[in-house]
Design a protein around this nucleic acid. Structure first.
Lengths: 165, 165
DNA sequence: TTGCATCAGTTGTAAATGCAATAATTAGGT
DNA sequence: ACCTAATTATTGCATTTACAACTGATGCAA
């Protein structure tokens, strides 16, 4: 993994600045957060939902009934946090939590009718925010952008979990 | 902001699923977080630093001495959180906090020599992680990617603060 | 100058988070 | 079948976080 120090007049020098405006992880994080913050403040907060809760509901809407551990994996939320979050969502009558049929230690989390209705209401708004975000980008640029992001995620994912090594 | 409902045989139907794998805010967030997590676990944790702390130090390295309120703005960290964080960084002898010369209510946060040394040590590692992330992307794709991310951020930024409106 | 608004930073407090430990169940090997 | 290991979810607890209230300092208008 060759970081090559530049050698100037016999002395090894390393750059001591990182131009954050050109640093990909920073750019990606910033973009992901600013969109989420706007959507959260305008669309989610009125319903008492956090961004994390929204992600859970979106995953449930897209993939159907899930075990908590799968939800945790798909949303990158710690399973203990998720457990308490599902409790809250159940209290809000947005999801149901039932013991799985085939395995008594598993739990099946599912959108309730009320949850489905709310997701259906929020999805177009989420799309609106995406549209605002990508304004001015061409179809081709957008394709490249998404493909690259998927590729990068795959690159990091195969690089094993962040805690191993 | 035209979300166009599709009208099928007289009934207005709205899509009730969001394909997260094709949804830009999700993709961006996921990418930003997975890189940060890897870097945090491998490079930062051994030094007792969180990702938020690293961002503060990177900003200080790039932009020099800053007031806390500016740091808060540049890093998107709440000013109260930042206040306590700077206290920790001072205790670790990585930054200094001195009363600003021209205004007795302001504070000037600056990297200490030890902080500078640590940043200089970490920057090449940060670059390594960026390199791992973008493996397989062409120069052109990378340019498009970064340009698009900058554009998107600008789009959202002009859209006023997330709490106004 | 005086009074008031604004600004930078800190602190109080309740809620949320993540790690570790635990309970409860299932899977696998011999 | 039996014992052990692995899996899933929950809870205890210390840390972290964000919002609000507050302190102190500065700016500004009359």
């Amino acid at each position: 993994m060759g970081r090559i120090p530049l050698r100037i007049s016999g002395t090894v020098t390393r750059p001591t600045k990182l131009d954050l405006g050109d640093y990909l992880p920073y750019l990606a994080n910033r973009v992901g957060n600013i969109i989420a913050d706007h959507f959260g403040a305008h669309a989610l907060a009125p319903h008492g939902l956090s961004i994390a809760m929204w992600r859970v509901m979106a995953v449930l809407a897209a993939n159907g009934s899930q075990r908590q551990i799968d939800l945790a994996d798909l949303t990158s939320i710690d399973s203990s946090t998720l457990s308490r979050m599902v409790t809250r969502l159940v209290r809000m009558r947005l999801v149901t939590r039932t013991r799985s049929a085939k395995s008594n230690r598993e739990v099946a989390v599912e959108l309730s009718p009320k949850g489905k209705a709310l997701v259906a209401e929020l999805i177009p708004i989420a799309r609106d925010y995406e549209a605002i975000a990508i304004a001015g980008l061409s179809r081709e640029e957008l394709d490249v952008l998404k493909r690259c992001l998927r590729q990068i995620y795959a690159n990091m994912k195969t690089r094993v979990a962040p805690d191993s090594l």
